[in-house]
């Protein structure tokens, strides 16, 4: 996965989380000002980012988002933080491309140390 695709994917994911959080009832009670039109702009922005991704990755992302709400799971100590299953060693060693968790299917993300 190229750096640009990775950056788009991560930003898309963070935007989706942002949209989801602002829809939480507890968030709305905190008193932050939210402009309705701006929210539409944000959804448009995430859709633009989705279109900039390679079609296959965009499709996987959307399917996983529908299934789990969060399509990407970080990897920590060889565990998928989406399903908390240990990942096979061969997966750990080829962490350069887009990789999905063999257990839950989420797109795996290795944080740079």
């Amino acid at each position: 996965m190229s750096d640009v695709v990775e950056m788009h994917l991560k930003l898309l994911f963070d935007l989706d989380n942002l949209i989801a959080d602002t829809e939480e009832p507890s968030y709305k009670k905190m008193g932050f000002q939210l402009e309705e039109e701006a929210s539409l702009v944000l959804v448009r922005k995430r859709n633009e980012l989705l279109q900039q991704l390679p079609k296959e990755i965009a499709q996987i992302y959307e399917i996983l988002k529908k299934r789990y709400r969060q399509a990407i799971a970080p990897v920590e100590s060889e565990f998928c933080l989406g399903c908390f299953q240990k990942l096979p060693t061969e997966l750990i060693t080829r962490s350069q491309d887009i990789t999905t968790c063999p257990n839950c299917g989420r797109i795996l993300y290795w944080r740079k140390k």
Binding site: K10, L11, F13, D14, L15, N17, L18, D21, T22, G31, F32, Q33, L34, E35, A38, S39, V41, L42, K45, I72, P74, E76, Y109, R111
Partner: peptide
């Protein structure tokens, strides 16, 4: 980038001199 997108939704300046910019990000553990 995510924080500035959040600011586009409406300022996180809650008034009387304080702001609380916030977001979730894959960049933190």
């Amino acid at each position: 980038s995510t924080l500035l997108k959040r600011e586009e939704l409406g300022s996180t300046g809650i008034g009387k001199g304080i702001a609380i910019p916030h977001c979730r990000s894959l960049a933190v553990e």
